[in-house]
């Protein structure tokens, strides 16, 4: 009798838990907030994912742009939102981590303020130059820079500036760093011959194919899938890398059933055929969802890496 009761109990609890798992449904429309303005790659990815969840699960997902400080404005609000699974934020790891390192005392959140749900993929950042430039790698660029009294290098984000300063400090190349607004602007200046080298995270790939641009280095920890022959900065002797991830997080304290259901929903959306196609079209990348636990780990490791990069 006892055994049967025990078994029944187990069955029951299993039934209850799976029922609970399958039963978690958002109590209203899910608000997926994008930490960047409309029209950028984060916006495109977020909207594609939101739509896919709607189609797959029948939940209503409202995607909103909340630009400001590379996602800081949005995550500040998300951190204090009610953890009911209805307010979710999507951003890029780099700006969040940099702000935590540089002015963490002024921010009202830290890494523990969130329950992490997923990553979408990792961005690939390259150093590029015009195809007719007389150098093919970082060493060549340094030589060229010394020769002409300072090569002009375009960047559009803090870590890129620091990477160049670090290389400059080691080699004495005397780079002159030109601050720009976007990858597209750098590409335009590069193609027009106004700068000697630049960073780029996607728009350059078609120019590699057309033969107008060449790649000097991968700035990530590993080489890029579309240019397997180009070495990383680490391989070229500079122990530094930048790994920006797109990630999705909710306010901490999400009920575990909600967290599981959401993580599952995001996972199946990110890996769906439609989103896969969008990621391929926009970024020439494949989806890469680390899952809730590894996303958190990525952020923690990333914070340490950034602290080293900024010398803090």
């Amino acid at each position: 009798m006892k055994v049967i009761k025990y078994l029944l109990g187990i069955c029951f609890s299993v039934v209850i838990s799976t029922a609970a798992f399958a039963d978690w449904k958002p109590s209203g429309p899910i608000n997926l907030q994008i930490g960047f303005g409309a029209g950028g790659s984060t916006d495109i990815l977020g909207r594609a994912i939101g739509k896919e969840i709607e189609d797959q699960y029948g939940w209503k997902v409202v995607v909103e742009n909340k630009p400001g400080g590379g996602g800081i404005a949005m995550f500040t609000k998300i951190a204090v939102a009610k953890p009911d699974g209805l307010k979710i934020g999507m951003g890029v790891s780099m700006p969040t981590l940099i702000n935590l390192v540089m002015r963490g005392d002024k921010l009202t959140f830290d890494l523990d303020s969130f329950d992490y749900l997923a990553t979408v993929t990792r961005a690939q950042l390259a150093m590029i130059a015009r195809a007719d430039a007389p150098y093919d790698d970082i060493a060549g660029l340094i030589e060229h820079s010394k020769g002409k009294g300072g090569a002009l290098v375009g960047f559009d984000a803090k870590p890129q500036e620091l990477v160049m300063k670090l290389i400059d400090g080691k080699s004495g190349a005397g780079f002159k760093l030109v601050s720009t607004e976007s990858g597209a602007e750098m590409l335009q200046n590069l193609l027009g011959g106004h700068i000697d080298a630049a960073f780029n995270g996607g728009p350059h790939i078609q120019y590699l194919e057309s033969g107008d641009v060449k790649m000097l280095a991968s700035v990530n920890a590993g080489r890029h899938n579309y240019a397997p022959d180009t070495q990383t900065l680490i391989e070229q002797g500079y122990d530094i890398y930048v790994d920006p991830w797109w990630y999705i997080a909710a306010p901490v304290g999400l009920p575990s059933d909600a967290k599981d259901a959401l993580a599952k929903a995001f996972n199946s959306a990110i890996n769906s055929e439609n989103v896969r196609k969008v990621i391929q079209n926009v970024l020439k990348l494949k989806p890469n969802n680390l899952g809730p636990n590894d996303t958190k780990e990525m952020m923690v490791d990333g914070l340490a890496n950034i602290a080293v990069l900024f010398g803090k």
Partner: peptide, 9 residues
């Protein structure tokens, strides 16, 4: 780009 068309050269 959502439709897989990359404006450019």
């Amino acid at each position: 780009v959502i439709h897989g068309i990359q404006p450019g050269p």
